[in-house]
Amino acid sequence: MSGQNEHKTMTLKLIVWRQNGKNGPGRFETYTAREITEHHSFLEMLDVVNEDLIKEGKEPIIFDHDCREGICGVCSQVINGVPHGGQERTTVCQLHMRKFKDGDTIYIEPWRARAFPILKDLMVDRSALDTIIQAGGYTSAHTGGAPDANAIPIPKPDAEYSMDAAECIGCGACVAACPNGAAMLFTGAKVAQLAVLPQGKVEAKERARAMIKAMQECGFGNCTNHYECQAACPKGIHVKFIARLNREYIRALIG
């Protein structure tokens, strides 16, 4: 166990998108990652490459990262064509190099969608997701004066359903994966989380309308039910929440 694999290292060829600033032209650059063990996380592998770059006096590859434990939702890289790299229920920061082999070539790109302008290299601007939440992803409960938490019992299945939707980490992989650059999974998850709870029902109709509107105004595409979003989602958010969003909207239309 201990130490049996410690000396086995890999060398990998990375083909990475580099782009200087929002409007700067982008291009692929090739780098070599050396001395990578199977225990390196994907981001730690990039750390190694970056340390080398800095020592050569070059600018390191810029990428978003913070918690490195799969919960903050900030890490965002498309690895060989799949956001977060395609390991089920795994964010880039939780992806480990044992999923790769010595000598592999790895393409690393930023999220690509009109609503997510590239800021630099692999870093994109996802503030559009915040804009969607600001349009109605809340209950208008003000601080203080809330009734006792147990005043309204919520059936366990509803609470579970709500929690299933609430697990979304707002990473935007669904948008990056969607052939249409649609944010329906993200939006659907929030609408569904609140719509099923008594606290959220009150504003359900207005919420669905407002959030869909914001989504459109932000430049996201339309859903044509490819379900690629669910497959790429690191939290496995189900497309049933998109159906729920559609249902809530129809309800809002019918009045």
Binding site: A149, P153, M163
Partner: peptide, 20 residues
């Protein structure tokens, strides 16, 4: 009050089968 406040916001805390 924190718990009350969070529930009002739609935080999906774990519940038992009676809904509490």
């Amino acid at each position: 009050h924190i718990i009350d406040q969070c529930v009002a916001q739609g935080v999906p805390f774990a519940r038992d089968y009676a809904g509490y």
